[in-house]
């Protein structure tokens, strides 16, 4: 819960967090090392110095650290795991649904543990998705279309097998499809410049929500264009968020473009923890105001009502969370407020 100086309360959902293990012991090869190095550069590049992590802590952190950063220090009421397995780079999955589930169970009501699938697993993967849906009550999946798999360097959402998986999602009640379309972390020709497959999938599956993580950066313009065509396309702010500190002017331009092309109901806050911590991101975001010239040019409004939607209400809506009821449920939860009572 975030409280403004005027006593207004905002219910916060961080729609993009991870508990990862990129330790030396878990790295399968050089790519595993380079992958986390790249994350670490993202981290150092856009984080205020007082929130810099040392490399060792960044490679692998404990559940307690996560709870403390996201809930005790991070204002969040809820957080959504978006696991990325990356099993071509790491021995145990980089983001692991099983480990996430331990936290989901340990702190009831606090987490949504999403799954993932990879259409290249074909029939076998469809079965796994069914089993995992039963076991983990999946409402959403994170897809990493650029993930390497042997010789293959990725897939598209418009591939025939991807369509079969999306049909399966519809059948199983998984309605939120988070797609990583962001700064290219693994090299792939197609993914590198194309968000067109989202367009195709979103119009073929009007009952599913497609949350484009990192708002399609570095293809913001293509993403905005697609999102104006398809009303079931959302923008996740992970990666864009830290610009609120590092380059506020760019942040203002990006957010006003998003408000212009998407509207205020389809933008979701995500920290991309542990690359960035939600605490300082939210502090800076709440203090942030659009510069006058940008307001004049775009007509965008970023007031408390809009911030409230971005920071929690929009994610709550697509994940069927009734906020007043959830607040009651969480009243007796051990993780209660920023710094008040530590549960770790």
């Amino acid at each position: 819960m975030y409280r403004t100086v005027d006593g207004e309360e905002l219910f916060i959902i961080d729609a993009h967090i991870a508990l990862w293990d990129a330790s030396k012991e878990n790295q399968l090869n050089n790519h595993g090392e380079e992958f986390i190095n790249c994350f670490y550069d993202y981290h150092r590049n856009l984080t205020p110095p007082e929130y810099h992590w040392d490399k060792k802590s960044f490679l692998k952190y404990s559940k307690e650290t996560l709870i403390s950063d996201v809930f005790n220090k991070g204002y969040c009421d809820m957080a959504i795991f978006q696991p990325v397995p990356l099993t071509d780079f790491y021995k145990e999955p980089f983001g692991d649904i099983k480990k996430n589930d331990e936290l989901v169970k340990q702190y009831p009501g606090r987490f949504i543990g999403n799954g993932s699938f990879d259409p290249r697993d074909k029939e076998k993967g469809l079965k796994v998705l069914e089993e995992e849906t039963k076991k983990y009550h999946l409402k959403g999946v994170k897809l990493y279309t650029a993930e390497w798999r042997g010789e293959s360097k990725g897939y598209k959402l418009s591939d025939p097998w991807a369509k079969r998986y999306l049909e399966k999602c519809e059948e199983l009640g998984i309605k939120n499809i988070h797609v990583h379309k962001g700064p290219t972390v693994t090299p792939l020709n197609r993914d590198a410049f194309d968000v067109a497959d989202i367009d195709d999938a979103a119009s073929s599956f009007p009952n599913l929500n497609f949350i484009v993580e990192h708002v399609g950066l570095p293809r913001l313009e293509d993403f905005c264009w697609i999102a104006t065509q398809e009303k079931n396309v959302y923008g996740g702010l992970a990666v864009a968020m830290p610009f609120v500190y590092a380059r506020p002017r760019y942040f203002a331009q990006i957010i006003s473009e998003l408000l212009f092309w998407l509207d205020e109901d389809r933008i979701l806050f995500g920290s991309d923890y542990a690359i960035w911590e939600p605490g300082w991101l939210i502090d800076k975001f709440m203090d942030f105001q659009l510069p006058e010239d940008i307001v004049e040019e775009t007509g965008s409004v970023l007031d408390l009502k809009v911030k409230r939607k971005i920071l929690g209400e929009n994610a709550a809506r697509i994940y069927d969370i009734d906020i007043p009821r959830k607040k009651e449920e969480l009243k007796n939860s051990p993780i209660n407020a920023r710094g008040d009572r530590s549960i770790v």
Partner: peptide, 25 residues
């Protein structure tokens, strides 16, 4: 002009992101 602005902004943003990332690296 609105569409062109989107293109310009994206390129500027990428430029910034890539340049500072290179400096960090």
């Amino acid at each position: 002009l609105l569409h062109a602005r989107r293109s310009r902004l994206t390129m500027e943003f990428n430029g910034h992101y890539c340049q500072t990332l290179l400096q960090t690296r």
